[in-house]
Design a protein around this nucleic acid. Structure first.
Ligand SMILES: [Mn+2]
Ligand SMILES: [Mn+2]
Ligand SMILES: [Zn+2]
Ligand SMILES: [Zn+2]
Lengths: 143, 143
DNA sequence: GTATAAATAGAAATCATTTCTATTTATGAA
DNA sequence: TTCATAAATAGAAATGATTTCTATTTATAC
């Protein structure tokens, strides 16, 4: 009995059990080019699964994020959003606060990003969040 | 009766009432070169004010952020943190996840930032959050 | 098939943040 | 210095997204 889907392989490679709900969750995320909240994914999945707990969706999305399969989207309403990005390698995302569409941005420097966004996406950049995390010299020493 | 402090003037200019608690809150934030949560500020302020509601601290910090006096710090624990940055003009922050110290970074491009951080701060960059917000062409049209 | 650990449902708890309402206070004008 | 007024506040309560808990189910390797 072959379940030869890409998502099946993906879960196998991560050492996660291949459950119908996980496959469906990946399918939902994979078909959306927008970021979704766990609750939104849950509502979509409940069409196919009458018994599906919201905590299950939270848990799986968190797990997939830990494995780098999906990425968190920061939002000023501070709710959790995730996006399944097919692109590999370091890059960034232009996210629309209105329709929640996500566009890959290959360059990294902020100036160049804004130029590229204006040219390619024809959108408006209203703000950007740029935060460098790490350890200061004092704390790095203690580690 | 002159209250000739910078914070007094600051609040006046914003059109906010100059209350003792607001002045003390600004003083607490101004003396810390680290980002603080509303609860932490509340605990510090309660030393001076026996009656001080936590909602008051939340409200004032939110208000000051809206006026651009203090800036939010994004944190993976998704709690609210604020930092009173004396520097003006567009720049970014290097925040230490360990001790929560904040360092101003004047250049904006990510590559250059990492170089500068390594050279000046002698710290370790473990990650960076870079998100460009705005409206896609579709949504920008509707506005 | 069977054993085992992982995954899940459903209910309940958590807890940072927000809302609500009565009271207090800062402020500017009289 | 009153005084009127809107702003600010305390304290209690509500909120709600997220997490935790436990019994049950399920995928998987043997
Ligand atoms: Mn980058
Ligand atoms: Mn910048
Ligand atoms: Zn540090
Ligand atoms: Zn859009």
């Amino acid at each position: 009995m072959e379940k030869n889907t890409a998502y099946h392989t993906l879960l196998k490679n991560l050492g996660l059990k291949v459950t119908p709900k996980r496959l469906a969750l990946l399918s939902v995320l994979g078909e959306e080019h927008r970021y979704l909240s766990p609750e939104e994914v849950w509502k979509k999945l409940r069409r196919s699964f009458k018994n599906l707990g919201l905590p299950t969706v939270y848990r799986n999305m968190e797990e997939l994020e830990r494995h780098g399969v999906i990425s968190k989207v920061l939002h000023s309403n501070r709710q959790l959003y995730y996006y399944f990005c097919p692109k590999t390698g370091h890059h960034h995302h232009f996210v629309c606060l209105e329709c929640r569409i996500v566009e890959d941005i290959s360059v990294c420097a902020v100036r160049e990003m804004e130029k590229e966004i204006k040219r390619r996406v024809k959108g408006t950049v209203t703000s950007h969040i740029l935060q460098v995390n790490g350890l200061c010299s004092g704390c790095a020493g203690k580690q």
